[in-house]
Design a protein around this nucleic acid. Structure first.
Length: 101
DNA sequence: TGTTTGACGGACA
DNA sequence: CTGTCCGCCAAAC
């Protein structure tokens, strides 16, 4: 129900906040961890609405193929490289940087 | 109130 | 590799 999604959204924030520095995860991964598989888009929407002064490491979230889908990918890329994540051609090697709790 | 859109994902061609 | 289709759902039209 919408009730499930409601509580799941809270988890989404907690999950994103717990992504370790230098690691990345995907929208779908977060959705699954939050207990709402196939709702990756919801996660994307939540992140897109975050205030720019948020503390959440939204830049550590990419799509399932390790690609940056952020409208302002340049900014995200800088933040990632700043913590040691190599971004090649707008893509990240998930094999190496995937966050696996 | 109905339709479109979007920081997604996975299956297919 | 690129492009299409469909599922999902809140917000914007």
């Amino acid at each position: 129900m919408t009730e499930t999604l409601k509580s799941a959204e809270k988890f989404v924030f907690l999950i994103i906040a717990s992504i370790p520095n230098g690691k990345v995860t995907s929208y779908g991964q977060i959705a699954r961890m939050a207990g709402i598989p196939s709702h990756a888009r919801l996660v994307g929407r939540i992140i897109s609405r975050l205030p720019k002064d948020t503390d959440l490491p939204w830049h550590r979230v990419v799509d399932s193929q390790g690609r940056i889908t952020n409208p302002n990918e340049l900014k995200q890329r800088e933040k990632l490289e700043q913590e040691g994540v190599t971004v090649i051609n707008g893509k990240i090697n998930l094999r190496h940087y995937r966050w696996k709790p």
